[in-house]
Design a protein around this nucleic acid. Structure first.
Lengths: 142, 142
DNA sequence: TATTGTTATACTCTATAACTATA
DNA sequence: TATAGTTATAGAGTATAACAATA
């Protein structure tokens, strides 16, 4: 198996696990991702749209559904009456924490059979790929 | 960065690349995946649905669109008048080949900066994870 | 003028349930 | 009865374009 095929299949595997855990928590994968992002703190709508790589109009629909399910809420931002801040509700925070823990556990199972040094090598290789990609996309944005 | 986070972020990276290349070829990621699967030969509708992990009704819509775009076609199966066989059109085959080559190249760039032995180690670790997951899901299906 | 967010519209992808035709 | 595929319906997610309100 070549590297490209491996990457595509590994990606499919992770997506499947992510989707399965999402469903188990009554979430769509996108809603789960939204909750996980918000776990790091409140965000503006435009900020979230950029972070998700979608148009702001898509965020409106996403947040409409998240709000209807009682997972997150929009609140005004003092000092800018155009802006809205998105925060997790208590229920959303609970769901996000539980989801995150379960995904981490399931992904952990995936690499559990590896020898300790293989796992560490794999982890640092992934981290390197991600870091390099971040810097290259950051530089191309200048 | 822990392994679970690494897997999720690497998955996001690969998905982004896959989506970008798909768009460059006028395809949705799902249509691109369909073409790639069909590159290995004709398939039945139910077979494709199972392979995609979706209901057969979803395949009907997927194939309606693929057929309308002239990428693939349904044809009768001699010997079973219920069944349909899905094959790539010439245009679909061309699109599939071009897409596959470009995705492989872009994913290759991702791991190009790695040292040769790091890349090989990474590749074989991925292959191992995938193989183990295949056998475990196969055994749980028994 | 630029930015923040919403609305309207259309398309893709998906699930479920009910259906037809064939095995 | 079981299998192969379709239709109808509903909902999620997305893009585009036009809009309102505020900076």
């Amino acid at each position: 198996m070549d590297v490209a095929t491996g990457l595509v299949q590994l990606t499919g595997l992770v997506q499947t696990i992510y989707a399965r855990v999402s469903e188990r928590h009554g979430l769509t994968p996108v809603q789960a991702k939204l909750l996980c992002v918000l776990l790091d703190g409140p965000r503006g709508m435009a900020d979230l749209a950029h972070c998700f790589g979608v148009e702001k109009a898509a965020l409106t629909g996403l947040m409409d559904r998240a709000e209807k399910r009682g997972l997150a809420q929009r609140s005004p931002v003092p000092g800018d009456r155009r802006a809205l801040q998105v925060t997790l509700t208590d229920e959303g925070h609970q769901a996000a924490t539980a989801f995150h823990a379960e995904v981490s556990a399931e992904l952990g199972h995936l690499i559990a059979p590896l020898a300790d040094d293989d796992r560490e090598h794999f982890r640092s290789t992934m981290a390197g790929i991600i870091a390099r990609c971040r810097t290259s996309s950051a530089s191309s944005r200048r």
